[in-house]
Write a protein that binds this DNA or RNA. Structure first.
Lengths: 396, 396
DNA sequence: AGGGCTTTGTCCTGTAACTGGAAAAAGTGG
DNA sequence: CCACTTTTTCCAGTTACAGGACAAAGCCCT
């Protein structure tokens, strides 16, 4: 029953909460260095936050040559729930107010089972985390889904790989069930927010976050803010055409990037190669399991299989070609590559880099890092927690 | 000597100035409806602005059933200079504080002559406008150049079609010569701002503005603000690859969009067609003038020449292919097509639309207008004036 | 132990920002 | 001339905020 009922009363308080979230516990003096307020006003706002219970003062910090300071920190009992619904599995995690992941579970699940079945499982997973003592209640939850979302309402719109989800009131339904504020966003955007908060994209204002999983998507961050586009479909780069009259895509067109390279496409190509006898390594695995996944290709490549390496390289080239265009257009300060397929590692990254550095102009690529995400599966759930905390830590 | 020395003292005053700029003269009561301030506070700020001379109260408006209101308007003597330096010509215009173009002149000039020669001409043109009595002095100037700009410093960086301009301190030099504040930006960004202020893009928050002239560029507007990228090269879509191993481009690569379609490429292809006897219409014009331009192709197409129409259609397809990718990625609320080549009119637009609507997903294209800019050559200079007025109408 | 010095936190006072109501000014229409 | 509307001004009270004085609590050196 101890829920976060209070919200910051003004922009100063919101700012302070975010400083404490991102910088950890701080003294009043340290906070004063980071915010443009007089000490008196700062003290007043901190006192008000203390009254609401959103922050607590616990103990004294070590002296730095003078009077010891009080440690101000966010309420230690605050808990956020981060949910990342992928095409084939679900990640659920609990974080504290500083967005540190306290517990994280992952279970396989086909998103095509529909919202009702998926939410049943999400709620069970959340209950499991509660039962393990990591949280009494949740003060807010962020939900990522693998498709476009009308963000203000928290409703998926025309999601290609999520039949049955179109128009389903995800935000409303989960808010009801969980009994706390909920925000819903595209999974790629959450990954971008995760890497921004705790990963490779800290301190970068404008960057792109490419997620290669079952499909391919791109999170766009402009001036530190996620850009979602007019209808919430920004970053939907999986259906950019990379080859006229190329492979048929589920969307109805031909030659889409996603039809040529993605977790699903890679598995398909690998099975094809195995059946055609072009790769003994893949054939062995195919016979053993009856099917192949991106992980098999990664393993085969690591074992030196030329065909597997070729598939990865070709996919990287295709992806790099698209990213090169995006880099020319968007001129980001960083490109992050993430998602399930990053298990393909350096071979993939090298192919992408080669394409981008060759095709884009030097002014855009001159100082452009292209790196793998460093948070892995934690990126999505961390981003989800960040999303809802950004919301709760803003003036009511 | 009557120069705009004063600047708004706070955000409220800045807001008021912009309201008066964009909405024209207004009474205090009307201003009060558009700004979140009490009448008393509003009156105080208006009085302060009156004291500085930035705004004036002239005459009474007609009654609307009660006491007649005072007309508050921006100082009528305020003048902004808008300069749009293209690859082959220069546009210079004077506007009043409401950014209405009072006078506009255009002269041919090759930007490759270098900054010194170009600025000599710009200053001469500005002097001519002054001499015609449209302005005593300029209170600010916006300058557009056809290449990437490091915006905070107002310095072109690595501009492909502007040899000799790299690193030239445009802002500083012109500020000195003109004796007023100056801002420098990419010409495409200014076109976007122009269409946003007075053209088709009013009231659209996120849109793209494609300018097809000698080269091809794209202005990106996010949340009403121009997005310039990390190094100022955002929107540089002319060098996105549209055909592997395609035409050689000036940038050193092959298959760039600009190498296949742009004012320059179109002229080249038209001359080729004329010489190869594929088009009698173009051949006649070629013999008459010794060379061909995009305008010739437009004229030939208007006369029904199949080859000319084919060139336009093919170019539109190529451009549309790239724009389709950008639409998928950026999910804009509007796409504006502008620049010199828009003389090609509906044929071009139709080809672009076809490609975009076919290649991008319905969610992104469902309600996406793709239209020609409605300001023509005035877009750039209006945008330039808007740029500097935005700067001057913000807190000092 | 005691005195100088530093850092942290609190208190207090004066000023500027701001709101909302009352009232005046200036109009319309019957 | 009166009732009513719209616009503007005036005024009094509240809140936001800055910055200085000062107290508290530590350090280090003698």
């Amino acid at each position: 029953m101890r829920r976060m009922t209070a919200r910051p009363a003004n922009a100063h308080q919101a700012r302070l909460l975010r400083l404490l979230r991102d910088g950890g516990p701080n003294s009043r003096a340290q906070l004063g260095d980071q915010i443009d307020l007089s000490r008196s006003k700062l003290a007043v706002e901190v006192d008000r936050l203390l009254e609401t219970g959103l922050v607590v003062a616990d103990g004294l910090a070590a002296s730095r040559g003078g009077r010891r300071s009080h440690n101000i920190r966010l309420a230690p009992a605050l808990r956020f729930l981060g949910v990342d619904i992928g095409a084939t599995s679900i990640d659920v995690a609990v974080t504290n107010a500083e967005l540190e992941v306290l517990g994280h579970i992952n279970q396989p699940m086909d998103v095509r089972e529909g919202p009702v079945a998926v939410f049943e499982q999400v709620l069970a997973m959340a209950a499991k985390l509660k039962a393990s003592g990591l949280a009494e209640e949740f003060d807010g939850a962020g939900i990522g889904v693998p498709g476009p979302v009308r963000f203000p309402e928290g409703v998926p719109v025309a999601p290609p790989i999520m039949p049955g989800w179109d128009g389903f009131p995800v935000r409303e339904a989960l808010s009801q069930e969980l009994g706390c504020p909920v925000l819903v966003d595209n999974d790629v955007n959450l990954m971008a927010m995760g890497e921004q908060h705790a990963g490779v994209a800290r301190s970068v204002g404008d960057f792109l976050c490419i997620k290669i999983g079952t499909g391919i998507g791109c999170g766009i961050v402009v001036g530190g803010q996620v850009y979602r586009g007019t209808t919430g479909s920004a970053g939907d780069i999986g259906h950019i055409q990379v080859e006229p009259d190329g492979r048929a895509c589920a969307c109805g067109n031909r030659g889409c990037l996603e039809a040529h390279f993605s977790g699903a496409a890679l598995a398909r190509d690998a099975e094809e190669a195995a059946q055609q006898g072009r790769s003994p390594e893949l054939a062995t695995r195919f016979e053993a399991a009856g099917r192949l996944t991106a992980a098999d290709v990664a393993a085969a490549a690591a074992a030196g299989d030329a065909t597997a390496l070729g598939l990865i390289r070709e996919g990287g080239n295709r992806t790099g070609q698209v990213i090169a265009g995006l880099v020319s257009f968007f001129n980001p300060g960083l490109v992050v590559i993430g998602g399930g397929v990053t298990g393909l590692g350096h071979t993939l990254l090298a192919a992408i880099r080669t394409q981008v550095y060759r095709q884009s102009l030097p002014l855009a690529t001159g100082n452009l890092p292209i790196v793998l995400g460093e948070l892995g599966p934690a990126a999505g759930v961390t981003g989800a927690a960040r999303l809802i905390s950004d919301h709760l830590f803003s003036p009511a």
